[in-house]
């Protein structure tokens, strides 16, 4: 039951993942609000944009931990998402600030749908990976 680095990684991953889940829930709600005309797109983008980079960085953080601790499987399943994040940020609209969402294009039905779908998929992914990390943590702890 020694407290190993992999175990530490998983514990951190669990905590971070919980945050990520909250992020994606917020994301989904935010876009739903946009769709139902609850919020002004400018305000909504202003509240969403600052969260984009923290989310990406948190996600990157747990993967760095996995990398260092040699948890290859967990790392592997996260790599596609990392790549997606990189791609997404690389192709973002021209913006002076951080973030992804442009209030002038966000109301476009296509963009809105894509963003909403992205939110749901990520939410599912984070939820699943939460249980995976939990399992991984237990395995690591037991193995130790």
């Amino acid at each position: 039951m020694a407290f190993s680095f992999p175990a530490f990684s998983y514990i951190i991953a669990l905590i971070v993942d919980a945050f990520l889940i909250f992020f994606s829930i917020f994301h989904v709600i935010a876009f739903d609000e946009l769709k139902t005309d609850y919020k002004n797109p400018i305000d909504q983008c202003n509240s969403l944009n600052p969260l984009v980079l923290p989310e990406y960085l948190l996600h990157l953080l747990i993967n760095v931990l996995f990398l260092l601790s040699g948890e290859w499987f967990s790392l592997l399943i996260n790599i596609p998402l990392i790549l997606y994040h990189l791609h997404r940020y690389y192709t973002r609209p021209v913006m002076s600030g951080p973030g992804l969402y442009d209030p002038t294009s966000i109301m476009n039905a296509d963009v809105l749908t894509v963003c909403q779908r992205e939110g749901w998929i990520k939410l599912a992914f984070y939820l699943l990976s939460f249980f995976l990390y939990l399992y991984g943590m237990i395995v690591v702890l037991i193995a130790a």
Binding site: L34, K35, D37, P41, P103, T104, M107, N108, A109
Partner: peptide, 8 residues
Amino acid sequence: FFVRSTDL
């Protein structure tokens, strides 16, 4: 224009 909501 600026699209302020889905139909506005």
